[in-house]
Design a protein around this nucleic acid. Sequence first.
RNA 1: CGGGGCGUGGCGCAGCCUGGUAGCGCACCUGCUUUGGGAGCAGGGAGUCGUAGGUUCAAAUCCUAUCGCCCCGACCA
Length: 503
Amino acid sequence: MAKERDEKAVTPRSEDYSQWYQDIVLKAEMADYSPVKGCMVIRPNGYALWENMQRALDSMFKATGHVNAYFPIFIPMSFLSKEAEHVEGFAKECAVVTHHRLGAAPGGGVQPDPDSLLEEPLVVRPTSETIMYAMYAKWIKSYRDLPLLLNQWANIVRWEMRTRLFLRTTEFLWQEGHTAHATHEEAWEEVMRILDIYRRFAEEWMAVPVLTGVKSDSEKFAGALKTTCIEAMMQDGKALQSGTSHDLGQNFAKAFDVKFQDEKGGWQYCWQTSWGVSTRLIGALIMAHSDDQGLVIPPKLAATQAVIVPIYRDDAGRAKVLEVAARLKADFAAAGLGVVLDDRENLSPGFKYNEWELKGVPVRIEIGPRDVEQGVCVAVPRVATRELREGEKRQKETLPLASCVGALKSLLDDLQKALFARALKFREEHSYRADDYSAFKQDIEKGGFFYAHWCGSAACEDKVKEETKATIRCIPFDGEKEEGRCFVCGAPSQQRVVWARAY
RNA sequence: CGGGGCGUGGCGCAGCCUGGUAGCGCACCUGCUUUGGGAGCAGGGAGUCGUAGGUUCAAAUCCUAUCGCCCCGACCA
């Protein structure tokens, strides 16, 4: 029995965190490996989550004046080399299209037709700054054309050496916003406006608390003046960069000649921003909330908020229970809740409980003959929203059928809050002040965020990375000014920065 | 690109060392009994053992080559 259970269950986090993560993704049917190395198939359970994320983010972008557009997946190779830093940052991971036709191969099968060699190879976009700004140069002529606030939802390709489901795959889905402004101030406001949207999305929808801050120079986006980010802590104490918003200054504007005539008739280069979040957020969500039972999805992002599991002994009882269950389902659906009635036969209720827990459905509703008799049902949140009472193994709430919809809604609400609170508590319990570098070298092994003084030099940063694998995750915006000394070299420092090992 | 591991019914594995013509669990199909935390019994279908060579009377097993995938590290969202 124990062995059978092992086969169905996920590997416990304590045993092998990385295997646990993989098990969750595969067994909850979020994604699967594809025939192409490094690429994954996002299955309906995973894609539904992405769609809900898209919907929430997209409406926040729209509410702040952004509009969607779509640019080509192929970029002329020469575009990549127009901005020096940018090409250096991405050259190593670009897929290149060199032919436009297949022909018969000598040994059978097909091969690229040598006669179809492209004059200029095309790069599969690793990000779209270059091709978008080539167009911006064409569209922007006057200060009246600014600001230009575009976003696109797209797939991109980065040929990574090592991939992990959702966290880093060769192809992934994301949104990339690209804006052009008349002044640096406006551009910077945009950078911060978007970062705040990302923070709010992470905290309010994903229930994942994030730090916001600026990247050190060595961690910033290739071609940017400044990169701001949201950083989340995973349950193994590692950091996950979950979104970035870049101040591009005029670097790309100069490279692509994106300029406008101001009120006085003079020509000026635009100030630009770019920002993005990707399907990596799904990885963040999994690693922030899920447990050894399986996936945990916050109610606000779940496609299915509740699953109803009917319980019965015989045909008569079955009919009665299913009738009530169906009515309950209709009531939930009418209230705008995603609900599934699991009326599959020959599967025991216990089996269904485990399966839906594995898939992360926020609330399970049990309804059996006893409940029908008393006009109630039993609601079980995926994660407890309150302290368990004496003798209580898991939180089960008995809800009168009459007021069930409202009760479920508030239970979902409580769950959303509980998940955030739990994640925040976890982060706080794994955040430390580090003043002594040699102690830090020991402590970093256990994971967590370490707030330490840093002199600002890349040399100290490199040394730490070399010796501990930890990097500066961000220079937090809300960090207090505090006189101190770099914990590596002892030079003066005005503020603590956040160090951690990262994905 | 280094280090490790793995390719055997749909999934997870055993068998390989010591060659003898493929087995277990789960899943699936049928029937009956079941259903408040992963149900039981009976019957059934399904695998050219990653690929290509070689050794041998005989290869999942030994030898050689090759392909692929996963994990860990260096690069990155």
